[in-house]
Write a protein that binds this DNA or RNA. Structure first.
Length: 441
RNA sequence: GUGGUUGUAGCUCAGUUGGUUAGAGCGCUGGAUUGUGAUUCCAGAGGUCGCCGGUUCGAACCCGGUCUUCCACCCCA
């Protein structure tokens, strides 16, 4: 058979793993520096934990795990006969792969609330799965790097997470735009437009502004059943590019005014950043558990022209997520870095540091069996003194072994023959410069 | 989930209106060079043309299905 892997998944070569680890290491370092603690949860959750948390679209994208045993025998015969997938599904699948790290975290907090000190700050770097149709920068299996705080509604955390996003991307050498909006501003907008109950429809439409333009948004709004008067009001918001210009439009909405006030505070406390921090009234974010401030980070195309990539990080505040799992109502706020997209962008911009190559220091090449036995002992001594050492495992032709050293990108090679065994002095060849020197170990 | 697109050697790709034995570059193996790689020269190996079926005297090429890739929509990191 021809080997293959499921679509939307990937294997990684050693060099790719090293570059991915570089990204994870940077992110983890800043998570630690900001006081977030690591936790782990299973890759599988009960399906009931996951369904209904991400909207209708999210449910469709959940990977379901088939029950073990005679799962069809236990399913309702009529539902099977009618080919009613929705009715059969809960009967044949009770588990699913996690779709993100936030909902499992909320479940975790409720289950362990007596063991945690609040505000509880945690991070997780782990794969998640979405049954989406794959595209560039969109995979069925990908890593998210999440930092969340639960148990406080202090806006200082919104500011802190903004700084965390800024620090990580500054360290990675990637210029980004950190866009902020507030669900309460969007709620206020819907209220002012006379469609308080249609907030999702309205935000989904205006979120497409940069893609389909103002006329396209108007068309989309009408298609979603928004009346002309409301479309006119919403148009005013689309032209407002700053908090100060949106604030007067929300004068008559209490919830809108609150959103403006909170965002003003976040902007004020976040301070000076390396990356661009911008208010964007058209930023919507689909995950429907967000209730407050929402974030989205994209590559700054002014600093990096020609980069086409969706959001590379995102997040927001969710006030009610733990309540869904029957816990106390603990407000949470968090961000998520999309490691694969960051990888693709860094690769495209050649922003990976050069020294993510293998950290081998010495490769030992032995010319005959006696030298090989000697070399193996030498390797032991070198490793014990902390040198990263490897040994070619047979006494092959030197040319062949040198070629292997070249492919391994070994910086230094030690050639061991009868002369070296006798004298205990070794010729060390620098593979970069070609120079050789005699050294004793 | 909807519509489109892609698939030929390990990799990147040629391949004429359907016609004998499917090519190139790079890589790989061996040799020139039995103590020196990345350079040079010579030789060689490697492909059921994604998979299944159909049309045809004959299919890498035409048709259907399927898987995969990428793109748009949906949504999203």
């Amino acid at each position: 058979m021809k080997p293959s892997i499921p679509k939307g998944t990937r294997d990684f070569l050693p060099g790719e793993v090293r570059r991915r680890n570089y990204i994870f290491d940077v992110i983890r370092r800043y998570f630690h520096r900001y006081g977030y603690q690591p936790i782990e949860t299973p890759v599988m959750e009960n399906l009931s934990t996951l369904t209904g948390k991400y909207g209708e679209e999210g449910d469709r994208l959940l990977f379901k795990v088939l029950n073990n045993g005679d799962f069809l025998g236990k399913a309702d015969a009529d539902d099977l006969k009618n080919k009613d997938s929705n009715a059969v599904l809960p009967q044949i699948s009770k588990r699913g792969l996690r779709y993100d790290l936030t909902v499992p975290f909320a479940r975790y907090v409720v289950m362990h609330q007596n063991d945690l000190a609040f505000p509880f700050k945690r991070y997780a770097i782990a794969p998640v799965w979405r049954a989406d149709r794959p595209q560039k920068g969109r995979y069925n299996e990908f890593y998210q790097c999440d930092a969340d705080v639960v148990g406080s509604d202090s806006l200082l955390y919104e500011a802190e997470l903004t700084q965390l996003l800024d620090d990580v991307f500054a360290e990675l050498g990637l210029r980004t735009v950190i866009r902020l909006n507030h669900r309460k501003i969007l709620a206020g907008l819907a209220e002012i437009a006379g469609h308080a109950d249609r907030m999702m429809d309205i935000t989904i439409a205006i979120d497409k502004l940069d893609k389909i333009g103002e006329a396209g948004v108007e068309k989309e709004l009408r298609e979603r059943g928004v009346d002309e008067a409301a479309v006119g009001i919403i148009k005013q918001f689309l032209g407002a590019t700053s908090l100060d210009s949106v604030a007067p439009l929300l004068q008559d909405s209490a919830v809108g005014r609150q959103g403006i006030a909170e965002l003003q505070e976040v902007f004020a406390t976040a301070g000076t950043l390396t990356n661009r921090l911008e208010f964007d009234v058209t930023l919507a974010r689909g995950l429907n558990y967000y209730t407050g401030c929402i974030y989205e980070v994209e590559v700054d195309t002014e600093a990096h022209p020609g980069i086409q990539m969706g959001s590379i990080a995102g997040g927001g505040r969710y006030a009610d997520l733990t309540g869904i799992f029957g816990g106390r109502d603990l407000s949470g706020v968090g961000i998520s870095f999309g490691a694969e997209r960051i990888y693709d962008v860094l690769e495209e911009l050649s922003l990976f540091p050069a020294d993510t190559s293998e950290d081998l220091e010495y490769l030992l090449l032995c010319l005959d069996d006696a030298s090989l036995a000697h070399g193996f002992q030498l390797q032991r001594r070198m490793r014990r003194s902390g040198l990263h050492t490897d040994l070619y495992p047979t006494a092959a032709k030197l040319g062949k072994m040198m070629k292997y050293a070249d492919q391994r990108n070994a910086p230094k090679v030690i050639i061991i023959g009868s002369r070296e065994v006798e004298s205990g002095q070794y010729t060390v060849k620098n593979m970069r410069t070609g120079e050789q020197e005699v050294v004793g170990f």
